[in-house]
Amino acid sequence: MPELFHRKIERTAIGFVIAIIAAASVGGIVEIAPLFTIHQTVEDTPDMRLYTPLELAGRDIYIREGCYGCHSQMIRTLRDEVERYGPYSLAVESKYDHPMLWGSKRTGPDLARIGGKYSDFWHVAHLTNPRDVVPESNMPAYRWLARTALDTGDLGLHLRAQQAVRVPYTDEMVANAAADAFGQAAPNSPFAAGVTQRYGEKTQVSAFDGVVPRLTEMDALVAYLQVLGRLTDAAYANTAAPQQAPNPTN
């Protein structure tokens, strides 16, 4: 019997390693590289806005607490999901997300369009102890969030790093990061105007946790939850059966 070609490869360690790298590289290259070059991968939407510093801080808390382990943020293109949670998610909606938080497990409901569904007050009560609001819930209680002051000192660094990964924050936004975070949670303060000026009129400015002078982690997290699904209206225009964007009066 002629010697199998494979017997030759087995005799050289380096050759074997190169063969492994070659075989293993193809799939990733074919599937990932075109996502950066094919333009249709991410839709164009002119109204897409950035996370404010406070919302970004809230997003970091969402990551830190592992909320993504129980909540998805990706409504699939299936009828029951659209009816339960709202229009299916578009790629553009996570365009500025580093990392994405689509999730893989729904122990709790999807949160992609939670923004505007409940009042700030509801969120604060729910996060403080979910079972006060929903007795059957198995979501953890996050009481300490309202007790912990938000660290705004590093927010400029956060925005700077976001710039580095090509999220279009301006230098002015970076310079005002801490002031904007404070302003967004203090509606009547002199800092509030700058937030809407820099991030758009639709930005929600309110005393998220109900207490103005103290900026807490609860403020940041609620600000983030309230913006979910509301960075752009594109999803409402795109769905076969158009839906109304929520417009709550908080």
């Binding site: 996502l35 553009v92 365009k95 997300d97 580093h98 990392p99 956060h158 580095a164």
Partner: peptide, 12 residues
């Protein structure tokens, strides 16, 4: 803290 270089759908 760091931010991944991959955005949204590409990150997924």
């Amino acid at each position: 803290k760091s931010y991944t270089i991959w955005p949204g759908v590409q990150d997924a």
